[in-house]
Nucleic acid binder design. Structure first.
Lengths: 253, 253
DNA sequence: GAGTGGTCTAGACCACGAT
DNA sequence: TCGTGGTCTAGACCACTCT
């Protein structure tokens, strides 16, 4: 059998489509431009709409496209870098952090969070909702879990629930001595509530950043922040170095 | 109109399916168990196979399931935490790091990397491939880009290409004084090469960790590491705190 | 060869945003 | 009301792994 078997591994159509579209995006389209609709594109490439959508989905996952129901598909701007790793460690709610308190309630946290806090599964903790904006767009939604033991003096405060109470809880937190923190990042999909806050559909891919705050030899608070995976690049602090990324003198892209 | 409009927002079928399956996984299945095949599952729930697959895809994205062609769908173990943030900064290839050199070549890096390195777009740099294993499974594939100027004494070494040369390049790197590093994490999809190394299909979701290494007042090396998003949770160093995660005395889950 | 997940088709209807 | 992307269907065939 002298047959050389090139192409014995035929590339899936949607994969090839993705390559072609990527090149087209690089050369023929500019940020914000809207693409032809899915039915036209599918016809142009001679594939079923579902196949085209498989390619578009991946491109959206990679942050190259943005699709909105009722509107169309547009070329996405480059991902924005959002600082996540704290160079100098500080409590959430400290002066100048990027978050805005939205609401506050008392509730039993998810089991995974209760384990981290070393509280009982059904023990209620302060649950603060915050949101983070960049360039006018929401980029992240956070749930902060704070056991009563971390803010003992709060009982004297009778703020109504809502943003005011959220601020009161955060203010109390600052009185604790922060000893350290650690973080983890994993892929998840947006819950219905997070999706609404992030202006995405439920199930949209998100980067879940879990932060443990240590004080008094234990875990004093836990934050679970979900970042839009399509638009965000999480940056972890330049260790002893200045950030030279957005210097207007260089970078002409 | 006094009609209360509950259920005016009908949940998509695949979303409901996902919820049902999640609960079933939590209560009725154990890690490693194989699920019924997709055709049977779809029939059991009274939906088309494509709809069921949409639910399974999300569950796989969330690390709850693992699907392998020709084999079946199994219940995935909890994600493994892999340390990414360096508590003490050190060059790649330093004693005791988690990576294994695979290969080395000279090539022009992607434009984005060339920008970080501040080299010309077509300048060739040493390109070292490494892979990272955990518990016998591949979790990450890395490409390390090192300009000639960062390893000036390498010319005296005539290692053949391959793992031996990769080790030689890394050895030379250690002579430079490391001044700092910064990292970023974003969502991507596996290239054909990465996919093979990670034992996944091309396009599989990955967490892309880009690390810049600073020495001599400039970027001396850039690493682009792709981690399997389905199986990995990236952890960023406990700042001044011991890791108490896998203490066998506690945690009976 | 049997059975699995992966790809693909050609339709249909729905929810949403703009007009 | 119209056009968009989102959901869903009922098939078909392919690539892969196991036996």
């Amino acid at each position: 059998m002298g047959t050389t078997q090139l192409e014995s591994v035929p590339e899936p159509k949607y994969w090839h489509l993705k390559t072609v579209l990527t090149e087209a995006l690089d050369s023929e389209f500019s940020v914000g431009e809207i693409l032809p609709n899915e039915r036209d594109l599918a016809a142009r490439f001679g594939v079923a709409r579902a196949t085209l959508r498989q390619a578009l989905e991946q491109l959206e996952l990679e942050g190259r496209l943005q699709r909105r129901r009722g509107v169309g598909t547009t070329v996405a701007p480059p991902r924005v870098g959002v600082a996540v790793g704290a160079e100098r460690h500080q409590w959430p709610g400290a002066a100048g952090d990027a978050w805005q308190p939205v609401d506050c309630a008392s509730a039993a946290p998810p089991a995974a969070v209760a384990d981290l806090l070393e509280t009982d599964r059904d023990e209620q903790v302060h649950t603060v909702r915050r949101s983070r904006m960049t360039h006018g767009q929401p980029v992240a939604a956070e749930l902060l879990y704070i056991p009563d033991s971390s803010v003992p003096d709060l009982s004297g405060i009778d703020s109504p629930s809502g943003a005011a109470r959220a601020r009161a809880v955060l203010r109390e937190l600052q009185h604790l001595g922060l000893e350290g923190q650690d973080q983890s990042v994993e892929l998840g999909s947006a819950s219905a509530e997070d999706a609404k806050e992030l202006d995405r559909l439920p199930g949209a891919p998100v980067l879940v950043v879990t932060t443990r705050y240590y004080a008094g030899g234990r875990t004093a608070a836990v934050s679970v922040a979900t970042y839009r995976a399509d638009t965000c690049r999480l940056t972890f602090g330049a260790s002893g170095h200045v950030e030279i990324h957005h210097d207007p003198e260089r970078r002409a892209s």
